[in-house]
Design a binder for these strands. Structure first.
Length: 427
RNA sequence: GGAGGCGUCGCAUAGUGGUCUAGUGCGCCGGUUUCGAAAACCGGUAUGCCGCAAGGCAUCGUGAGUUCGACUCUCACCGCCUCCGCCA
């Protein structure tokens, strides 16, 4: 959500931002509704003031005089009820419109329609070469009995899967590896707070982070009205909802783990096989809350991205970084980098990390504030990036580390956690 | 699942229909005093909306209702506590 004052003062800027993102928003209508809101508020406030004044008079008057005022008040009240009803309707529309106003993309975000227009900014590592024909992770893992999609579908339905044996162990290894990566940062003075957060959450946090109402169809909903989160970002951001934070603690860095659920409603027919796109997965997420400054946001955004890169470098997985084009940005995002890992079976890079910042778009919706040095209340800035998601990264890893004959080498960085150097039929 | 209780200013507590424009204590900030400090005393100490301002309005978990008037009464929801049952 943007500040209504800001919107009013920068209508053209906000319009241009929405146009750049290819998001339709009726700002003229919003301004008109806001005018109505202000006018009604003023009229109603004046009447309430009158009501308060007269109410006090009733206390000190008696008998006939008192009866007379009460009668007058009943009439005043009748008029107010009507106005209140109008204001309620206006506020409903106002709120609905406010939720549709997108955040303004950064100048450095390239124009474009979809992920096809994302701009590569960096490439790390050589695309893995094999002196044999590389296989896909589905075949590799099925042959080694590391995954069972058939029973996955039997039990869980479409996109269901079981990870078995060394695939389960390799997943644990990745989790421990990433966990230790952030713990080690703490030892160097870069403090990250590990959290295990709820996946099952109430509507507010989804609204606050911007997944509702816009992407509601991609969320699972319970019969009690809660939703299943597609990322730990939702609960981690909800954690500080309606709080005034102590600026001395900034930047607050969370390293959150949770199961994630996505309906993939808009992805019918995409990646129907394998572990790349599943309904249920696990993810470690980096979430940062910091002071309300663009410079701070940019700084931590680069840092979050660098963390994910470093982790991939330790795993020696070739990747590239793209800057997402305007059309591929979410409603609240100012700027986003995707990190894409090399997927040998597809001969292309696939997204494994998504790093973005929001300025105060989310914190405004979630009412997360702090007091600055001057004692002024401000909305904090928020950012997030994937740390590591399995099984998608597991698929990437297995394809890049496959060996002739279908065995899989264990990355050096994980050997310690897995306890073996090669995964193969013999174990 | 059943029964009961409770949600008030950073914290603790008072307030059961009208000077509550929410009292008191603690905490915090400023001042007086002091060589300095403590103590004592005095003053201050929420957020949002509207307004150039003066000021007005709203908020006592959230929302609705009763009333001329609601922290106070009614209903629903959210949360917490106690007891019983059930499960581990």
């Amino acid at each position: 959500m943007l500040d209504i004052h800001f919107i009013r003062e920068n209508v053209e800027l906000v319009k241009a931002g929405a146009a750049k993102k290819h998001i339709e928003v009726d700002l003229d209508r919003l301004i008109k509704v806001d005018d109505e809101r202000k006018l009604l508020r003023q009229e109603l406030d004046a009447k309430k003031a009158e009501q308060n004044r007269r109410s006090n008079e009733i206390q000190i008057t008696k008998d006939k005089e008192r009866e007379k005022i009460i009668e007058q008040m009943q009439q005043l009240k009748a008029g107010m009820a009507e106005e209140e009803e109008r204001l309620k309707k206006v506020m409903e529309e106002w709120q609905k419109l406010m939720l549709t106003v997108p955040n303004i993309p950064d100048m450095s975000v390239p124009d474009g329609n979809s992920d096809a227009d994302n701009l590569e900014t960096k490439k790390w590592g050589e695309q893995t070469k094999f002196d044999f024909t590389p296989k896909g992770h589905v075949e590799l893992m099925t042959v080694l009995d590391l995954v069972d999609f058939e029973r996955g579908a039997k039990v869980a339905g479409f996109r269901g899967y079981f990870l078995k044996g060394d695939a389960a162990l390799l997943s644990y290894a990745l989790w421990q590896f990433i966990s230790n990566y952030f713990v080690k940062k703490g030892a160097k003075g870069d403090k990250w707070i590990p959290m295990i957060v709820p996946s099952l959450a109430r509507r507010e946090s989804f609204m606050g982070t911007g997944y509702v109402p816009q992407s509601e169809e991609d969320l699972y909903k319970t019969q009690d009205g809660e939703y299943l989160a597609g990322t730990a970002e939702v609960a981690t951001m909800g954690y500080h909802m309606n709080e005034v934070l102590d600026a001395k603690q900034f930047p607050l860095k969370y390293f959150s783990f949770s199961p994630c659920f996505r309906r993939e409603a808009g992805a019918h027919g995409k990646d129907t096989k394998g572990l790349v796109r599943v309904h249920e997965f696990f993810k470690f997420e980096q979430v940062v809350l910091c002071e309300a400054s663009h410079e701070a946001s940019v700084k931590y955004h680069e840092e979050l991205t660098a963390n994910a890169e470093e982790m991939l470098q330790l795993l020696k997985i070739p990747y590239r970084v793209v800057i997402n084009c305007s059309g591929d940005l979410g409603l609240g995002q100012v700027k986003k980098y995707d990190i894409e890992c090399w997927m040998p079976s597809e001969g292309k890079y696939r997204e494994t990390h998504s790093s973005s910042y929001f300025h105060d778009f989310q914190t405004r919706r979630l009412n997360i504030r702090y007091r600055d040095e001057r004692g002024e209340m401000k909305f904090a800035h928020s950012l997030n990036n994937t740390a590591l998601a399995t099984p998608r990264l597991l698929a990437v890893l297995i394809e890049n580390y496959q060996q002739e004959g279908g065995t899989i080498a264990v990355p050096e960085a994980l050997a310690h956690y897995v306890g073996k150097k090669v995964i193969g039929p013999a174990g």
